[in-house]
């Protein structure tokens, strides 16, 4: 997929991104697949003691056409965003063309303790939110001392 920054025209955001990437390259890499920045959809990942939360920023997509799969600890989100730009024969001029169009696919590796049978996915305001419960055994438990 062609590299395309989500916010390409803001110089300050770009500088900030470069700085962040340099900083992160010194830190531990999260996984072998890394987290390629600049892909579509942009993703945020977080977690609580009982769940893993994934947010994919994929605006303007029919939620039923999104293909989300979980297999062997890897979550894959794939789909297509149709271009809205006019065809060549139409009498229209494209002044700015920054929005992503085409097929996309992103992969996130999940922690070992997630329960593949307890997944909840919602699409709201252009954000796909996938919440995966962690297995009970993995949750921190207070050990009582007599």
């Amino acid at each position: 997929m062609m590299y395309r920054s989500l916010f390409p025209r803001d110089l300050f955001a770009e500088l900030d991104r470069l700085q962040r990437e340099m900083r992160e390259s010194y830190e531990l890499s999260p996984s072998i697949r890394g987290f390629a920045r600049g892909g579509f959809p942009a993703m945020n990942v977080g977690g609580t003691a009982s769940s893993v939360e994934i947010y994919a920023f994929a605006p303007g997509i029919d939620p039923t056409s999104i293909d989300a799969q979980m297999e062997k600890g890897v979550l894959t989100i794939a789909g297509e965003r149709k271009p809205q730009l006019p065809g060549k024969d139409e009498k229209a001029t494209v002044h700015i063309d920054e929005r992503f169009a085409g097929r996309f696919r992103r992969v996130v590796s999940l922690p070992d303790d997630v329960d593949p049978n307890a997944v909840n996915a919602k699409y709201r305001d252009g954000v796909l939110h996938i919440s995966i419960q962690r297995r009970q055994a993995a949750q921190p438990r207070r050990i009582s001392i007599d």
Partner: peptide, 20 residues
């Protein structure tokens, strides 16, 4: 990110604002 398209009758702007 935005797309801006102009035709004879006006301008159409699309902007991605996911999460809003």
């Amino acid at each position: 990110p935005v797309d801006v398209i102009e035709d004879t009758a006006g301008i159409t702007l699309y902007a991605d604002l996911p999460g809003v």
